[in-house]
Design a protein around this nucleic acid. Structure first.
Lengths: 324, 324
DNA sequence: CTGTTAGCGCCTTCAC
DNA sequence: GTGAAGGCGCTAACAG
């Protein structure tokens, strides 16, 4: 059984109130008694029970974080930066992964609410109109990252549309006259939150190429790619994530297609592992660690001072590699 | 303010006890009343307060997990598998990162103890003899992964010595007659926990090569490598982690040294991203996801049934690539 | 300056 | 079947 304030009080022949004053530098207390109590607490190995404290204070100093998974370095970098920032501000991380499942996500949210997290940061797969009001019902600060939920929920991200437009323009400026655009399915709209994907697609659509673009929107994009004559025209393959681009690179290498002389490839995210990839992938930097730090900052201020969290757009950047 | 059992009780004109019976299927209760109470609970949007429940039950259903960071895919895969397994068993993850700092690790442990985690899984940087008794003082199940703390703390891992011995033997069998062995500093012993590293080094030392091996043990291994005539003899560079091996590959590519015809390279861990790397890295599989799942399994049984957690050795495997 | 006490929300015994 | 009540450990308001 762990040592409690009562144990210390008994051991020192004082009241629990006095022990509390000694331990937490609250109000007036006889310095000698304070010494004695602190010494005894140390001797007994007292560790405050934060569960009890949380119950009393109605605050757990915990931020719930819900993301898809940690297989994509994008998210592990995010969690890494958030944990660091959270620790600095004396918050804990309650982490849950949805694996892109909407029901799992809802369960995660509910479970976190039951655990009385002080705030919620999520990269959501949910999209239904009523999801955002459902979230607001819980009356704690919520921040969405990377995938907007609604205008009601603060959203921190890059400008996905602009970023993909810039990427597409960069491809065009490089002299490519046709693009094969690879994205996860865009038709999932009524079942999944694909806000960012749609934004990117719109951005892509704003740039005109000489020859008609080919859109592949499928999890099975490599198989789709096989049905296309890639070498026709001066073609670039533009992917909505680096991971997709890496798979494409692998496919092209297998087919002995030269990059970038026969076909160009461009990714999106600029994940760290790219430094080990050859050829160096041209991509768009997504400053996910910065976004994570900002999210923790904003949400902790919202928790502590009731500040409203502002939407925020972080600057992206074209990263020039050798794959285009 | 969130809805409590008392609110429901008042709304239904029953006692809190009865609400509890309805909500948790406890004991006898008038079916009609139960219906009414459940309906009311739903209507009011009742969500049990787990903090209060935890305080009462003395169990938080939370497992504290402490690892170095998430930059190495090794750890993000680990967390990923643990989160999945934990969710399945209705545990939450309290995640903290140490960034290889011993004091940070201790603070993380203390903070988790204060939060009353039911168990602790850690990949430790601490090594001092008294660390393991300090850990045991808290009287909750503890499991160490990947880096052994002491014989007193259950340890789940591969047999690092055997694994590196097998790797070295594989290199020798491939016809290499000299090895450059790259490891983080082994001299940190009095400051850091380098159990696994030492085991690997011992395993490596058990195999005799024709020419004397060169040991590089430094964070600055690339610079060290520059001072060596790599092309002398038939040399293989054996690294204690894939990440190191990837850096070495980058260095060799930059120097236009052909792999494996001029020099061989071997890694350790078999992280997922290797599938995007060329040439395919020969490495040792470290079944970290399996280890994570086993750790959660064992610790949850220890929490629930008081089972003693057994040490466990998981099978490694040589992964044959094209870099050797 | 110090002790007492009433909860935070839930769970559990005990009595009716 | 149901209600009343105490307590998990900590905090804070109130007495003294």
């Amino acid at each position: 059984m762990a040592v409690t304030i009562k144990n210390i009080a008994d051991a020192c022949n004082v009241s629990r109130g006095t022990v509390d004053r000694a331990l937490n530098n609250r109000g007036k207390i006889n310095p000698e008694k304070k010494e004695l109590i602190l010494a005894k607490a140390k001797e007994l190995g007292y560790k405050p029970n934060y569960i009890a404290r949380s119950l009393k204070r109605g605050k757990t100093n915990t931020i719930g974080i819900i993301v898809f998974n940690l297989y994509n370095e994008f998210f592990s970098s995010l969690i890494n930066s958030m944990e660091e920032k959270a620790k600095e501000k004396d918050y804990h991380i309650d982490l849950a992964l949805t694996h892109y499942d909407k029901d799992t996500e809802k369960k995660c949210v509910e479970s976190m609410i039951r655990r009385q997290v002080d705030g919620l940061i999520l990269c959501s797969v949910n999209n239904k109109k009523d999801y955002s009001s459902w979230l607001q019902k819980f009356n704690i600060p919520v921040v969405s990252l990377a995938n907007k939920i609604s205008n009601k929920i603060p959203y921190i991200s890059v400008d996905d549309r602009r970023a993909m437009k810039d990427a597409t323009q960069y491809v065009a400026d490089k002299g490519y006259d046709r693009i094969i655009y690879i994205s996860p399915p865009l038709a999932y709209e009524d079942t999944h939150n694909i806000y960012a994907l749609k934004q990117r697609f719109e951005g892509f659509s704003q740039v005109n190429m000489e020859h008609e673009s080919i859109i592949i929107e499928s999890k099975d994009y490599i198989r789709e790619l096989e049905t296309i004559n890639i070498l026709e025209y001066k073609t670039a393959i533009l992917c909505t994530s680096d991971i997709y681009a890496l798979e494409v690179l692998n496919y092209l290498k297998e087919k002995k297609i030269k990059i970038p002389s026969q076909v160009g490839v461009m990714g999106f995210d600029n994940i760290n592992m790219l430094k080990y990839i050859e050829p160096h992938l041209t991509t768009v930097s997504y400053p996910i660690e910065q976004i994570g730090a900002i999210a923790i900052d904003s949400i902790s201020q919202a928790i502590e001072n009731g500040n409203k969290i502002q939407n925020m757009v972080i600057t992206h950047e074209i990263i020039i590699g050798e794959s285009l």
